[in-house]
Amino acid sequence: MANKPPVVPSPHDLLWGLTPQQLPADAPAWAHAALARNAPVVVRRAVAEPGWVAVGVRGVAREQRFAMWMPLTLMRRCVRPEAIARAQRWTCHKHLQWPALRALLYLAPQLNGMHLNWGVTGSLGFELASGLTAAHAASDLDLLIRAPQPLSRALAKNLCDLFDHAPCRVDVQVETPQGAVALREWGNGAMRVMLKSNTGPLLISDPWAVQRTAA
């Protein structure tokens, strides 16, 4: 039987396998506490050496974020935003009255009906995937739309109109092979949009083009 190809983590993926013992000497106490409770780390956007991945440790407070590098050999599990969306664990969340959860209940059937490759990120995605408390009643909803092929500006605008009817603020990133752009910026028809790439932000007219103009 052929071996499965190794998983290549992407930004926003959640990875398990890092323990407090692997943290660098300058890691804060809250980062040790987070990994001690089996919290995953979040893949961040940066250029990594072969065999490594750029990650961030999340603490309980919003300002508690610790950037570091993780050897891929430590990775035991990888959960992508799309897998969080497919699992639909928000339907049995104990706080279904939260606006972000009501927004998911409203949006998920419509996004699935449009056959979009979408996922949940941010604090709510972290909580739904890990079972650890990370979101709260005032949390926004952060989504990702995977778009290996160009997403038309017309569709982007229609999606923005859909999200405007959600019961909370919805922040949507469109992931292209080159990096990520804000859906709203792409849908608003700007001549150039900000692309978040592994090497830094870029101003670009076509997020799917290879040729780019540095910001």
Rank of each mutant, 00 (worst) to 15 (best):
D161H: 14
V174P: 05
A83W: 06
N3H: 14
P109T: 12
S123N: 06
L151S: 07
P5Y: 08
L111M: 14
C92Y: 11
P207Y: 01
R37Q: 15
W30Q: 05
V43K: 04
L162A: 04
H115W: 11
M68Y: 06
L14P: 02
R65C: 03
D26V: 10
G131D: 10
I145R: 05
G131E: 11
Q21I: 07
K196Q: 13
P24W: 06
W90N: 02
G179M: 05
A138R: 14
P5A: 14
K94F: 09
H93G: 05
K157P: 02
P150V: 04
K94V: 14
D164G: 08
D142P: 06
P109Q: 11
R153S: 12
Y106I: 00
D164C: 11
H115K: 15
C160H: 07
V57W: 06
A39P: 03
M70T: 05
K196M: 06
G187K: 02
A83Y: 04
N198P: 03
G187P: 03
C92G: 08
S197Q: 07
A29S: 14
E82H: 13
N117V: 08
V8N: 13
G17D: 10
A2W: 03
L144M: 15
W16D: 07
Q173C: 01
S205R: 10
A46F: 07
A100R: 03
T19K: 13
W30A: 05
C160P: 01
S130F: 08
G113F: 12
Q149G: 00
P11S: 04
W208G: 03
K157R: 15
S197G: 15
A29V: 14
H115M: 13
V47M: 12
T19S: 14
L105R: 14
A147D: 01
F66I: 07
L144V: 15
A215V: 12
C78G: 02
